[in-house]
């Protein structure tokens, strides 16, 4: 699946997007964030305020308790500041 990052999440991770294979046991958005934080200091620094991170599954806002199964593109980003 494709992970895509925006704003300071993108900057702290150091990537705009990447393809990943999720290990078994990653069922929810929350599981995904936990797993990513263990992948390196850059991920930990980007995602440590985990509750604040917003996640979109295939371009739709989701909750951290939502299942990630079936999503092709998962986007992680800070709270939005448009308008």
């Amino acid at each position: 699946m494709k992970l895509i990052y925006f704003a300071w999440v993108r900057e702290r991770i150091g990537l705009a997007e990447e393809e990943v294979e999720l290990p078994a046991g990653i069922e929810t958005v929350s599981d995904l964030l936990h797993w990513l934080r263990g992948r390196g200091e850059n991920y930990e620094s980007a995602l440590q305020a985990q509750d604040m991170i917003r996640v979109a599954l295939d371009k739709e806002h989701s909750d951290h308790s939502d299942a990630v199964a079936g999503a092709k593109e998962i986007a992680l980003f800070p709270p939005m500041t448009g308008g």
Partner: peptide, 10 residues
């Protein structure tokens, strides 16, 4: 739009 549209300002 302020809170749900995916835009970020710097």
């Amino acid at each position: 739009m302020k809170t749900r549209a995916p835009f970020w300002k710097r």
